[in-house]
């Protein structure tokens, strides 16, 4: 019974990682950049939700929407100001810029809202459900987190495969120059990708903070790194890959914490990652790119 309970907690955490990883993987797929500032967008999302509920007494759902809106705008703004001028620059230059943006957001948050940890208000209280005569207690929030993740995943897959914008995104990720020749507005497409990724980050932030109710300026770093790992785990650039990678990572982390050692859980997760990459060098669902000579 314990195992089942850990498994569900792990899936809940994994769903949050998966939602964040989707943002990483979409941006990577289309802009070929590691957006290290993604974790800090999560942090901003958490603060926005915190103030929306705590200060302005917004209803929970409205607060979530507000947070999504702010993060979406922030994502587009970051892309336009910092990344767009570097479209033709080397990947490393873009990486450093992303790190600069990450520092900027963290320090801006620290100046604006202080470096102390704030307690995130309870936005959703669904209680628990008992199964097997009360032997298994499952938080309904965890189930909803998993459900939200699945819905996002399905909608996103449909969006990318069925809509015109989705097609444009796939075209851009294949070949930007050709896409442009086919009449696709590459700049807008990239902006839309950032908007979706950042919006998802806001949803992830609310789910994350509902489970671990603490908000501080470095809140996003660790989930950011973990989600990045999850994206690589599943094969970066692949949307189902990010989903599976996120879930696996969450389960692995929770089980390692429960059965081996809570201090060593990170090390175990990263060790498994190295082993997986040794066996499947491009991640679980990553495409094998054959080099042309």
């Amino acid at each position: 019974m314990d195992f089942l309970s850990f498994l569900i907690t792990g899936l809940g955490l994994g769903s949050v990682y998966a939602i964040i990883a989707l943002g990483y993987t979409m941006v990577y797929g289309i802009a070929k950049m590691l957006n290290f500032a993604h974790g800090d967008v999560i942090m901003i999302g958490a603060y926005v939700a915190f103030f929306a509920v705590g200060k302005f007494n917004m209803p929970s759902l409205v607060a979530v929407l507000f947070s999504v809106l702010v993060c979406t705008l922030l994502g587009v703004l970051i892309e336009r100001l910092a990344y767009k001028p570097l479209r033709d620059a080397s990947t490393l230059s873009v990486l450093i810029t992303a790190i600069g943006v990450s520092y900027f957001l963290q320090n801006a948050a620290q100046i604006l809202w202080g470096s102390d940890t704030k307690i995130f208000p309870t936005m959703f209280d669904f209680g628990n459900i008992s199964l097997f005569n009360g032997q298994l207690q499952i938080s309904l929030l965890t189930l909803i987190t998993i459900l939200v993740c699945i819905v996002i995943m399905v909608v996103l897959t449909l969006f990318i495969n069925k809509t015109k914008t989705g097609k444009a995104m796939r075209a851009c990720s294949e070949d930007k120059a050709t896409a442009q020749l086919m009449g696709i507005n590459v700049d807008t497409t990239i902006s839309i990708t950032f908007a979706i990724g950042s919006g998802l980050a806001a949803i992830a932030s609310v789910l994350l903070c509902s489970t671990y109710p603490a908000v501080n300026p470095t809140l996003g770093s660790m989930p950011g790194i973990k989600a990045f790992t999850a994206a690589v785990f599943g094969g970066i650039g692949s949307i189902p890959g990010a989903f599976i990678g996120g879930l696996l990572l969450g389960v692995l982390e929770t089980l390692a914490k429960a059965y081996i050692s809570s201090q060593m859980s990170d090390a175990i997760v990263f060790l498994v990652l190295i082993i997986v990459l040794l066996i499947k060098p491009t991640g679980l669902l990553g495409k094998k790119i054959s080099e042309k000579v």
């Binding site: 910092a82 570097l86 620059a89 230059s93 873009v94 450093i96 810029t97 790190i99 600069g100 943006v101 990450s102 520092y103 900027f104 320090n107």
Partner: peptide, 8 residues
Amino acid sequence: AIVLIVIM
């Protein structure tokens, strides 16, 4: 952070 971004 701003210096970093601007230099890049």
